[in-house]
Write a protein that binds this DNA or RNA. Structure first.
Lengths: 118, 118
DNA sequence: CGTGATAGTACCCTACAGAAACCAGGTGCC
DNA sequence: GGCACCTGGTTTCTGTAGGGTACTATCACG
């Protein structure tokens, strides 16, 4: 179903409540457990695959690599490969990623503040 | 790092990066496309099932009812049945739900502001 | 010559998201 | 009477996202 006709501006200024708006995709990407955690982890600076894997406790390598690929596709993170041995790959936030990190941090903070460990 | 001890069933101050922390569940719930949209829709006041279904374009009744049930289980929304004909069921935010709506609104706003419609 | 580290991929399986059909049960319409 | 229509879901079926574990390539080190 290509919406690539002049239907493109059908959701005007961007409305996440409109099904065919491209911002739905972005919401689906960001409103996701692993994306929110990964972007938060990268706020501290670039991280390697293994570092992220350890930090995002419970994520499997397959899911981490898929999540990062999706974030890369949406220009939220960059992937830099260093031709070294052992191999080194660094993931870093783009400017867009850094700006997205702000509302995501607010969401994580709300969760940590409002879930009582009682 | 400060990873002195990983508590078995409690993560102390609440850390979404800890796999077994109960706040992981809450993050998983809120960091979700439909939850973010549903909570946003309910900010305007209580809504009926059919109203939400129309507002959250593209959601299926099964997924909507499951999402609302999950939000209800976490005390973010209330479900009120009126014994009328035709049947009427109203969903409304709790106080906790209203406070969660704030960071979620920020996230939706970021998405709408940063996804170019072309 | 075997072990370890890194950054993934391959394989398999389960659970859930999503689409479409269906249900209860009361009302208005003819 | 009989039938379509309203609401708020549930049931059924299927595709895909997620997850566990094993395995790869490359080189350094002992």
């Amino acid at each position: 179903m290509s919406a690539s006709t002049h239907l493109a501006d059908s959701c005007g200024p961007g409305d996440v409540y409109t099904a065919m708006c491209p911002c739905r995709d972005m919401l689906d990407l960001l409103a996701n457990k692993w994306s929110a955690l990964a972007i938060g982890a990268l706020e501290d600076g670039p991280q390697r695959f293994g570092e992220l894997r350890r930090q995002l406790q419970g994520i499997s390598p397959k899911v981490l690599s898929a999540s990062l690929k999706r974030l890369e596709d949406h220009d939220l993170v960059t992937r830099t490969v260093y031709a070294e041995v052992p191999p080194r790959v660094e993931y870093a936030l783009t400017d867009l990623g850094h700006s997205a990190a702000v509302p995501l941090a607010a969401l994580r903070d709300w969760v940590e503040d409002n879930v009582t460990t009682h």
